[in-house]
Design a protein around this nucleic acid. Sequence first.
DNA 1: ATAATTTTGTTAAAAGATTGTCATATTGAG
DNA 2: CTCAATATGACAATCTTTTAACAAAATTAT
Lengths: 212, 212
Amino acid sequence: MAKNGSYVSEAVIRRMPKYYRYLEDLEKSGVERVSSKELSQRMGLTASQIRQDFNCFGGFGQQGYGYNVSDLKREIMKILGLDRTYNVIIVGAGNIGQALANYTGFEKEGFFIKALFDINPKLIGMSIRDIMIYDLDSLEDFLEKNPIDIAVISTPKDKAQEVADRLTANGIRGIWNFAAVDVAVPRGVIAENVHLSDSLFTLSFRIRESLD
Amino acid sequence: MAKNGSYVSEAVIRRMPKYYRYLEDLEKSGVERVSSKELSQRMGLTASQIRQDFNCFGGFGQQGYGYNVSDLKREIMKILGLDRTYNVIIVGAGNIGQALANYTGFEKEGFFIKALFDINPKLIGMSIRDIMIYDLDSLEDFLEKNPIDIAVISTPKDKAQEVADRLTANGIRGIWNFAAVDVAVPRGVIAENVHLSDSLFTLSFRIRESLD
DNA sequence: ATAATTTTGTTAAAAGATTGTCATATTGAG
DNA sequence: CTCAATATGACAATCTTTTAACAAAATTAT
């Protein structure tokens, strides 16, 4: 996907979902074309950076015209891997696990939650939006019988690594981790750590900073 | 707090909560001292970067010895503004709002949730862990009578900016935003945008990338 | 008590990211 | 059809961040 198989920096990748958000808004508002200048004003970036970013993946624009919103959005979806669907399971049916299962927004982007797992007998057998909560003991069995692409870890932090190990040992190649530890995964497996509290602490840092 | 009032870069700030996490783990394991080298191996950073980071805020270490874990942790807590408490409200008592209200972990760090607000009549009057859900109409009234430091926005995205405006108009200086838009705030107000889906899309980008 | 080892804080160098500039292509107005 | 305006893609310059190197200080071992 990258322009000539060359390396694309972390910073650029992290901006791609943001471009996607803004382009989706533009498309919904019926805007057909957009220049890097206009997009830069909306997004609070420089026009130069936007052009540079898109050019990491190939030239999607046209001189004198700008970028076609729908085309560009489609390209970014391809880049982000949003041109396919993903089967997802959630391990840990506590607060976050349940909230994610209840949220219907990810389905629109192609992420389908197929099951939840927990060790709490009170939760096992229940379902959320018709998604069953299974005993964590049956995790390996389930993974063998169902093609799952992504696993969410929303367990307490002291169980997260153990769960990650079981997931990767059974073929999971993508982990979205909400536990407050960085999980280690073998080469070839992708782990995205969320760390909500890091974000809260950054906020409190800035509040503190703004006071002196 | 910064070494001599000088600017500390975004990149350094974003690493601080991570240091805090690792230092807390070390302290809990009874480790008394740690060198930048050992910490670097645990955290997957370079020792040089760790020393450089800490020196943005003043020298907390000692040559030949390293860093005292408890002292360093305490310093980082001060830097992050975790040496005080914060009163928090949550606007939007849907999936994420409820999950955050149910989660007890933030209290340990000094963040106390005082109220939730929603427009759904079925939710208004209920409570979560003894935290009342109020009518959003009473937001201004509540903010006048209670000293609130931080507001969480967990509304649908089309309501987020309007809520942010009402919050900042009534004295809120810190916003933790979970809605899928970047909220704009006036100077002097800090907004931390979470964007869970950005994180999920980064994961799908990497999965896609790993396939070719 | 002394020497070898450890390890910081600092400075310098290297690497990486962002911004500015400009030639060139396209559009749109007259 | 021609000309001015627009806007990209590429490259160069600047700025930021990370890594490396090292002198100085403290610790540890003998």
